[in-house]
Structures are given as structure tokens and as C-alpha cells.
């Protein structure tokens, strides 16, 4: 199975797990959940979302919200299982690093 590239993709998959969201909503969630730590150039989130779509981890559609046309993204079942695997890998890695560094 294709793996997501880098931590940004993993973070986006994790945020998408909460439900359908547009790009700005995802950036806001990312900022809030990380306590402002993940303050990446917001425009680079979109190429990352296109990449997730290309790999079949996310799907998107146009939706009209308050008279505005928004592209909203959601996690696919493939994305969900990849997230689950990546999350387990990350926890194992973080535990190992913590054991050495702490």
C-alpha cells in the first residue's frame, strides 16, 4: 500500500478523521489541536490534500456553504486504514525516542 509522504500528510489525515472539512477548516483544526505549534505556510496544505486524493486517502467535492462554493475533503476507508497504521508506527517511534531521550 502507498504510504503518505511526511508528517504533514499524516497530520491532515488525523484532522480529517474528525469529519469533512475545507482547506481553511483543516488548517484551523491543525493550529488549534497543536496549540499553534504547526503553523505551516497555509497554501502548502492544498498540494498535500491533492496528493492525499491522488493516493486515494481522501476524497473531495464542491459544496455550497452560506452561498460560498467550498471544496470539502473527507477521509476514505483507505485513508482511514492508512492513518491507523501510520498512527501505530508513530506511537512506536515516539515511545522509542522517548525511552532514549527522556
Amino acid at each position: 500500500m502507498e504510504e503518505p509522504k511526511g508528517h504533514v500528510d499524516l497530520l491532515l489525515l488525523a484532522v480529517l478523521e474528525d469529519g469533512e472539512a475545507h482547506g481553511y477548516g483543516l488548517v484551523e483544526s491543525l493550529r488549534e489541536r497543536s496549540g499553534g505549534t504547526f503553523d505551516l505556510p497555509e497554501g502548502t496544505v492544498y498540494p498535500a490534500l491533492y496528493r492525499l486524493e491522488r493516493h486515494g486517502f481522501a476524497a473531495s467535492r464542491w459544496r455550497s456553504v452560506g452561498g460560498r462554493r467550498r471544496r470539502v475533503y473527507r477521509l476514505t476507508s483507505r485513508g482511514r486504514s492508512t492513518l491507523s497504521q501510520q498512527r501505530a508506527d508513530w506511537r512506536a517511534f515516539a515511545t522509542a525516542v522517548d525511552a532514549v531521550v527522556a
Binding site: G43, T44, P47
Partner: peptide, 14 residues
């Protein structure tokens, strides 16, 4: 949002 060059380059790569 980031500078035009960075955003455009990443979209072009995708």
C-alpha cells in the same frame, strides 16, 4: 498563506 513561489511550485509538482 505563504509566498506565491512556494505555493505555485508545490502545486506544479503535484
Amino acid at each position: 498563506f505563504g509566498d506565491v513561489d512556494t505555493v505555485a511550485r508545490r502545486v506544479r509538482a503535484e
